[in-house]
């Protein structure tokens, strides 16, 4: 069912990602009587990042639930709600705190449909702000997407701008399987984009090409997208820039067709390098397009260390580091 509506006639406003996500949640709560939100401090406080601001007042505490401080309880109960006909959207305050719920996500949500032969499914969305750049230190900065990308049965989504954030969350709500929805908190308020009023969706499983070029393919997602675009624009690089948006299942066709055109690949993400999403992309390209490559596939990533507080700007891949590897690839 195509839920997209005509964008013509929809008023456009400049919104930040927090506002865009808030609007998506508002639309879901308003149109789906079985939808509800649960999480820590999401009601009275509107969420520590204010993504759920005003929704308690509008929809009441039965549908915007301030939960006790227990992630396994939040996710575990949300899965039960989902399996019995509700459409819960759980917020984990910081992705760093999701691990007590890991068992529930991996062993319950991701396996319900399979082990019950399709008698049960768990259409639950688990929203979690992730990534660094807000001086959050070890426990308010992690990028744990790989843990979830490694789990069949989950969708893993991450937007990189307000427009995508709203449309992607609305698309996630239409899925009948569990979704890990990772929100790059560094971009929550740092960028604004045109966001239409009302409902529209961003296709799940499709990457977006943000720049079109012939010499190199730069693959990235989430919080690194604006940084990569800066590098490309400031240096007039002739590059394809791919924003993955969906990390599981990845848009293989778009990746491969771009690589076959350019023959050079740099992958950029904040998460540590070892077994990061870049490792999988690199393997997929090697299996399917190695004969098209003029240079090794390079990964520009966070370091394989815990996330440091004072030195976070050195931990996060910056424009210099990205440019260095782009040049290395181009000159190879």
């Amino acid at each position: 069912m195509d839920t997209r509506r005509r964008k013509e006639g929809m008023a456009m406003r400049q919104l930040n990602m927090v506002q865009a996500l808030n609007e998506a949640l508002d639309i879901i709560l308003n149109t789906d009587p079985y939808s509800l939100l649960l999480g820590e401090d999401i009601g009275r406080d509107g969420g520590v990042f204010r993504v759920t601001d005003g929704l308690l007042q509008k929809y009441g505490k039965e549908r915007v639930i301030d939960t006790p401080l227990n992630e396994l309880g939040i996710v575990g109960t949300a899965i039960g709600m989902a399996a019995y006909g509700l459409r819960p959207i759980a917020e984990i305050q910081f992705q760093d705190f999701i691990f007590p719920a890991f068992d529930q996500i991996v062993n319950q949500a991701a396996k319900i449909r399979y082990r019950s032969g399709g008698k049960f499914n768990a259409p639950v969305i688990i929203r979690a702000p992730y990534g660094g750049g807000i001086k959050g230190g070890l426990y308010h900065s992690q990028s744990g997407e790989s843990y979830f990308v490694h789990t069949p049965g989950l969708y893993v989504l991450t937007p990189s701008n307000p427009y995508d954030a709203k449309g992607l969350l609305l698309a996630a709500h239409k899925l009948n399987d569990p979704v890990i929805f990772l929100e790059p908190k560094r971009l929550y308020r740092s960028i604004k984009s045109d966001v239409p009023e009302g409902e529209y969706t961003i296709p799940v499983g499709k990457a977006k090409k943000l720049r079109e070029g012939d010499k190199i393919t730069i693959i990235t997602y989430g919080s690194m997208v604006p940084t990569v675009l800066n590098v490309v624009d400031k240096n007039n690089l002739d590059a394809d820039v791919m924003d993955l948006i969906t990390l599981l299942p990845m848009d293989l066709d778009s990746i491969i067709s771009s690589v076959k055109k350019t023959g050079r690949v740099v992958i950029v993400h904040e998460a540590p390098r070892t077994l990061g999403v870049g490792a999988e992309i690199s393997a997929l390209i090697s299996e399917r397009a190695i004969e098209y490559l003029y240079a090794p596939i390079f990964r520009v990533t966070g370091f394989d260390t815990p996330f440091p507080y004072a030195n976070e700007e050195h931990y996060l891949p910056d424009e210099d580091r990205i440019l260095k590897y782009v040049r290395k690839s181009l000159e190879y």
Binding site: T77, M81, G85, Q108, K111, I112, F120
Partner: peptide, 25 residues
């Protein structure tokens, strides 16, 4: 009945969510 998993007691929070769905519906 629900569907049975191996990890012990993992279904208890799930059961609370199932009850929530019953109440809300």
């Amino acid at each position: 009945f629900y569907s049975v998993q191996s990890p012990v007691a993992m279904h208890l929070p799930f059961a609370v969510g199932a009850a929530y769905a019953k109440v809300m519906k």
